[in-house]
Design a binder for these strands. Structure first.
Lengths: 172, 172
DNA sequence: ATCCATGCAAACCCTTTGCAGTCCA
DNA sequence: TGGACTGCAAAGGGTTTGCATGGAT
């Protein structure tokens, strides 16, 4: 699960037209846990937030997750931390940009560690792995919506539901 | 709100490469109410479902809506229908493909009348108008994700949050 | 007449809040 | 020490369910 994938397939015939626009890139979602945990805690510290026991435990637990998780997952992963604190901490991390909220097919929220510059996610429906999608390629479309309709685009969200390569190999 | 917009801007320089791939198209979300209501009821009938009073009332109400609506909106729009029936009927319409579920920025569900062939929505954050987005242009990206990662794409959801032209004109 | 569909109310799930006590800075 | 943080438990909202009644075919 530590491989990193750079996507650059089959858009070559477009590149002479948009030489400065890179193609999409994708990589999966796991890095070296302790380092990430330290980075997360440093960020919290820089925001003047307290490094409490429950917060450290929660950060350690979510950094250890290799997949998107629900609030309930966290409640169970760190039973010594109260339910309310789990919710409060997740919200705090989301507001700090350290964790991002994504949504399941049925709309229920999932969370995953946030990686710089990514906007979208491909979520494995079997194992919960999250592939980040960089440069989703819809900016042009959004601009065109503005041009053709007069609407102003404020934001967008793209969720992609997949079976990751591992799960395809495991038989779906 | 009855205008229909066909998008075809600024992708011309791509078309010689994908002559068969149309550009995105967008139109807003309202049609002639009674006709749509009849069509919806016919579809329910064709599925062997009963044409009860509550169902007719709910279909009439939602066809009359010019914007996306919540379940609660429906409860209040048709106070003579029980709360549970509203939820059950919305689910039924979603399962029949007549209504589609979309999601607000915060993830709470909204619903809107479903139009054939559309996959995505631009939702006005001020008035709730829904612009359908046809040919969202991300299919190519999804194929490329498959090629580069070995994942299998099962589905995707794109939500675009906008201020529609009317609301821009009204001062945001 | 037969079931499907409805209404009511309770149950349910997930999340938030109030408040007294705790612990980091 | 003070104020941010926590835990508990209760409240909250949105949605679903059980069950007896009602209504469409």
């Amino acid at each position: 699960l530590h491989r990193r994938l750079l996507y650059s397939a089959s858009m070559a015939d477009h590149e002479h037209e948009h030489p400065t626009q890179p193609t999409e890139s994708v990589h999966d979602h796991h890095q070296d846990g302790p380092e990430v945990a330290t980075a997360v805690l440093n960020t919290l510290d820089a925001q003047g937030l307290r490094m409490t026991g429950p917060r450290k435990a929660l950060v350690a637990a979510l950094v250890d997750k290799r997949a998107a998780f629900t609030a309930e997952d966290m409640v169970q992963a760190v039973p010594e931390v109260g339910r309310a604190t789990v919710f409060r901490t997740i919200k705090l991390l989301v507001d700090s940009g350290l964790v991002c909220r994504l949504s399941q097919v049925d709309g229920r929220p999932l969370y995953s560690l946030s990686h710089q510059g990514h906007h979208h996610h491909a979520l494995c429906q079997r194992c919960g792995a999250v592939l980040d999608i960089y440069r989703c390629g819809i900016d042009t479309m959004l601009e065109n919506i503005e041009l053709s309709t007069g609407a102003r685009v404020l934001g967008h969200r793209l969720e992609v539901f997949v079976l990751c390569a591992n799960c395809v190999a495991a038989g779906g």
